[in-house]
Design a protein around this nucleic acid. Structure first.
Lengths: 206, 206
DNA sequence: GCACATCTGTACCGAACGGTACGGAAGGGA
DNA sequence: TCCCTTCCGTACCGTTCGGTACAGATGTGC
C-alpha cells in the first residue's frame, strides 16, 4: 500500500509531523526552479521549507530524492498543461495548447521565470548527474507523449499521411525548450506568445 | 596598451609562463561547457588545464573571470557561426546559416553536447549569478545582432515592409536555444537538422 | 654573474557543502 | 498513566568549496 505523496507516513503511531509535507515540497520546488539543483543548497531549501535538515531527510530522503519529488509536483502543477494539451481534439490544437501553456508557465507572475525541467539541471558536475539525467528523462517522456499523440493524428487522418510524428513532436518540444531559455533570460510573456504563434504558422494542414 | 588574449603578460621581465595560456583557456572552456559554471570546480578546471590553482589565478583572475574569458573564446571559436551568419546576403540565408550553425556546434563530435551560452548557467544560486547574467547578456547580444540584420533586410526590401525584425530575431534565437537544450539531452545532429529545416519553412517571402 | 621580477608548487585558510548522531519533545494505544 | 514510536532541534561529522601566503624555481636586463 502506497500513499500518494510518496513521503512515507507509515502508521498513525508516534509523534505526528509538525508541518505540511505538500506545502514544504512546494517551497522546495520553487527553490530548485529558481536556483537549479546545484545552486540550491540544503540551507536554502530547508530555510524556504520552514523545517530543519533532520525533518527534511526524514520526510524526503536526501537532496536528490527531494528534487525528484519536486519535479513530480512540478509535473502535476505548473507543467500540467502538457498532459492537458495532448487531450485536445486535433494535432494543431495539441501543439498550440502545448506551446501556449509553456509560454504561460515559464512567465507566470509570482513564479520563477523559465522551466524547472530545463534550468533545474542542464549541465552538471559529477554529484549533479542524477538530477540532470532525471530531467533528460522527463523531457523525453514529454516528447514521447507528443509523438504518440501526433502519430494517432496521422492514423486518424488528422495529419497528412506520411507525416513524421516524431519530428513534429521534437519540433514542438524544441520550441518549448527555447521558450524556457528565453523566459529564464527575462523575455516577456507577450514576446514569447508571438514567438509561439510564429512557430505554429507552418503547421501541416489538416 | 592591451594584449589580445587579455591574460596579462605585461613586460618580458621575470620568469616566463610555463604553459600556453590559450591552450589552457581552451581546456577550461570545455570543462565549463560540459559541467556548467557551478558544476565545474577549480579542481576540475585546473586539472584539465594542466596547471596549479596559483597559476590559474595569476593568469586569469578568479573563477568568474576565467568563465568570462572562456565565453569569449567560445564566441570566437565554436560559436563563430553567429558572426558569420549575419554576413549572409539575404535574411533567409542569415536565419538558415544561424540555425544550421547552431545544430553543428551543439552536436560537434569531440566537443560537449549543447551550447556553453545556454547550459553554462541558466539558473544559479547566489555565487553563480555573475556567470548567469553574463550569459543572459551574451544571448541578448546575439539576438541584437540578428535583429539589426533583419531590420536592414526590411529597409532594403529583402523582407516585406512592416516585418517585425525583433520578433524574427527572437524566433530564430528561441529555436537555436531549443536546439541547444535538445542537444544537451542527447538529440542527434540529423534529428536537429530536420527541426531547424522545419523551423524555417514559414519564413516570410522575399 | 648578479639582481630582480615573475611564475610555480605546496600547504593551508575560513566557509560552506551534503549528511547524520543523539537526546529531548510530543503525540497515539493500551 | 505509562510506554513506545516517531519527530524535532542542536551540534557536529568529514569533505569540498573558492581563494591565498609563502618559499623556491626560472627566466631577462644590466
Amino acid at each position: 500500500m502506497i500513499d500518494g505523496m510518496e513521503t512515507r507516513q507509515k502508521a498513525q503511531i508516534g509523534r505526528p509531523r509538525g508541518f505540511d509535507a505538500g506545502e514544504a515540497l512546494e517551497r522546495a520546488m520553487r527553490v530548485f526552479w529558481e536556483q537549479g539543483y546545484e545552486g540550491a543548497s540544503l540551507t536554502d531549501l530547508t530555510k524556504a521549507m520552514g523545517i530543519t535538515r533532520t525533518s527534511m531527510y526524514a520526510a524526503f530522503g536526501n537532496k536528490e530524492d527531494l528534487f525528484r519529488k519536486a519535479l513530480e509536483r512540478y509535473t502535476e502543477g505548473p507543467a500540467s498543461y502538457g498532459a492537458r494539451a495532448v487531450r485536445e481534439p486535433t494535432a494543431r490544437q495539441v501543439a498550440t495548447a502545448f506551446l501556449n501553456g509553456s509560454v504561460r508557465a515559464t512567465t507566470h507572475p509570482g513564479c520563477p521565470a523559465g522551466c524547472l525541467g530545463v534550468q533545474g539541471s542542464l549541465a552538471a558536475g559529477e554529484p549533479g548527474r542524477g538530477a540532470r539525467d532525471a530531467l533528460i528523462t522527463w523531457r523525453e517522456e514529454a516528447t514521447s507523449l507528443l509523438r504518440d499523440r501526433f502519430q494517432r493524428a496521422v492514423d486518424e487522418g488528422d495529419l497528412p499521411p506520411g507525416t513524421d510524428a516524431g519530428l513534429l513532436a521534437r519540433y514542438v518540444m524544441t520550441v518549448a525548450n527555447g521558450i524556457a531559455v528565453q523566459a529564464a533570460g527575462g523575455a516577456t510573456r507577450d514576446d514569447l506568445q508571438k514567438v509561439a504563434d510564429m512557430a505554429l504558422r507552418n503547421w501541416p494542414p489538416s
